[in-house]
């Protein structure tokens, strides 16, 4: 474990806590894409299939459980919580994410560490995570004004993978024969997809104005 990876995991955890806070405090999920939350639930379930078979550390197992449980809890809230579900932007959150799931799985069948069920699903989860934010970014563009907690959620969600890239560089430089081509390539694509969001987030922070993404 190095400081970049720890910062990445803590940033990722923070983003999830911010989203839970937003939904709990405002009893609303306006501005949040349920499709992105469902994609993230799929990402965590298929990435952590080894949750019960491979024990790496208490930290690793604990975080995996937190990620799976929180993503499922958020999807449950947005679908079934009597108050929260009413504020879901159903008519704006229309990204047809079936193609993202299909393309990620197709790519995983071609490019994986090993051709086994667990490894193909692991690669699938890596590719899917790279594009999982797209429905959320589209929703932000369509919904105009973005509330602070939702903006912070997306910001830290994008930042965590940037820390992971620093972690991969650090490990590549310090550990012999360390390579993470699948996660690394996908992580760069994932972080790049946030580029314009980061730009408008920085502008809103500098001008102390409301975050606004151009339609």
């Amino acid at each position: 474990m190095n400081v970049f990876r720890l910062a990445g995991d803590m940033t990722h955890l923070l983003s999830i806590l911010l989203l839970l806070l937003k939904i709990y405090a405002t009893k609303s999920c306006s501005g949040v894409s349920r499709k992105t939350q469902e994609l993230y639930a799929i990402v965590f379930i298929f990435r952590y299939l080894d949750l019960f078979t491979d024990f790496i550390s208490v930290y690793n197992t604990f975080m995996k459980v937190v990620f799976i449980a929180s993503s499922l809890a958020i999807v449950w809230c947005m679908r079934f919580h009597p108050v929260v579900r009413r504020s879901y932007d159903r008519e704006l959150d229309t990204f047809r994410y079936f193609f993202l799931v299909g393309a990620s799985f197709a790519l995983a069948l071609i490019w994986h560490e090993k051709f086994s069920v667990q490894e193909v699903f692991w690669a699938f989860s890596i590719y899917l995570e790279a594009v999982a934010i797209l429905p959320q970014l589209v929703l932000l563009q369509r919904s105009g004004n973005v509330d602070n907690l939702t903006g912070q959620y997306v910001f830290f969600l994008g930042a965590y993978r940037a820390f992971y890239i620093l972690n991969w560089i650090y490990r590549y430089l310090t550990e012999p024969r360390f390579t993470r081509w699948i996660a690394g390539t996908s992580g760069v694509v994932q972080t790049a997809l946030y580029a314009d969001f980061f730009y408008y987030y920085f502008i809103s922070w500098k001008n102390n104005s409301k975050l606004k993404l151009p339609a």
């Binding site: 990722h12 080894d50 491979d54 560490e113 992971y164």
Partner: peptide, 10 residues
């Protein structure tokens, strides 16, 4: 063991 080596990250 090598599987644990390259899936040690979240």
């Amino acid at each position: 063991l090598n599987k644990i080596l390259y899936h040690d990250e979240l």
